[in-house]
């Protein structure tokens, strides 16, 4: 089970704990992640807001490198990076003139059989929740997370082709496989405000406040995410102290992998008290 791997720029900065927990969980599942050699930034929303062609070509360089490494499908943990890579894939597959333009600029030939997968999709549907369940050492019984998908995984559905865009279930199924009891709520795909955090903090505070208070009202003890920007916004712009996990961290708890204390240290809202109260610290 070998995969090409795109960690993304925040892997060693704002979502350090996402990167480390992803690696630990993948090892526990017996898989191997092979980092794309000399990968570059996916471009993020900033790039397609300024120069759309550039926003297609930056991910294309990564696709080109992953394709020629021939280690298997490309796996992307960050929802934002995943979305950018899929936008490029969509243009390469559906717009012949654009494909030729991108190929010429980046200097490669696109192989349409090359697959790009979100880490969550890979774990839930390829590896499968059955295999996840078998690997659980300590059930997350009693933990009530709100599964938050945000925007980039599920929208635009023609591009990401992942789950239901209004009421996705992948993450809920994964949490159930770990023994947790995800709550039902209606804000799982509402936007957190993304990079407006840096220019309009008050707007993000409003959007995050609504998401977090709705999760709490629905009985959640924490929120689970798969995006570095969502995690940072939810954790730093709320006022109720609800812990915000990456889904791989909760897998790590259930699999009882080592090094978890290093993850918790990176959180603005420590999840330790919650985990201790459930005997999961």
């Amino acid at each position: 089970m070998k995969f090409s791997y795109f960690p993304g720029c925040t892997d060693h900065s704002t979502s350090y704990e996402y990167g480390r927990s992803t690696e630990a969980v993948f090892r526990a599942l017996g898989g191997e992640l092979v980092e794309i050699e000399d990968w570059n930034c996916c471009g993020a929303a900033a790039t397609h807001s300024i120069n759309r062609l550039l926003s297609l070509c930056l991910p294309a360089r990564n696709i080109s490198k992953a394709q020629s490494a021939q280690v298997g499908p490309l796996v992307v943990p960050c929802a934002g990076c995943f979305n950018m890579l899929k936008r490029t894939e969509y243009a390469l597959k559906n717009d012949e003139a654009k494909r030729k333009e991108i190929e010429e600029i980046v200097g490669f030939r696109y192989d349409p059989s090359f697959e790009i997968l979100a880490l969550m999709d890979l774990i839930v549907n390829r590896i499968g929740t059955e295999k996840v369940r078998e690997r659980v050492k300590r059930s997350l019984k009693g933990l009530k997370p709100a599964c938050y998908y945000g925007c980039a995984l599920v929208r635009h559905p023609k591009i990401t082709q992942l789950d239901d865009p209004e009421n996705p279930q992948y993450l809920d199924r994964l949490m159930k496989a770990l023994g947790a009891e995800p709550i039902e709520w209606s804000y799982k795909v509402d936007c957190c405000g993304a990079d407006l955090a840096l220019t309009y903090g008050n707007v993000v505070k409003k959007l995050v406040g609504r998401i977090v208070s709705m999760a709490k009202e629905a009985g959640a003890q924490c929120i689970v995410t798969s995006c570095g920007l969502c995690q940072a916004n939810l954790e730093m712009r709320q006022e109720v102290d609800l812990p915000i996990f990456y889904f791989t961290e909760l897998m790590g708890v259930a699999f009882d992998v080592e090094g978890r204390d290093q993850w918790w240290k990176k959180h603005m809202i420590s999840p330790k008290r919650l985990l201790e109260s459930l005997g999961l610290a």
């Binding site: 635009h156 936007c191 990079d195």
Partner: peptide, 8 residues
């Protein structure tokens, strides 16, 4: 913010 809710 390109959340794509509208287009969806």
């Amino acid at each position: 913010v390109s959340c794509e809710t509208c287009g969806t």
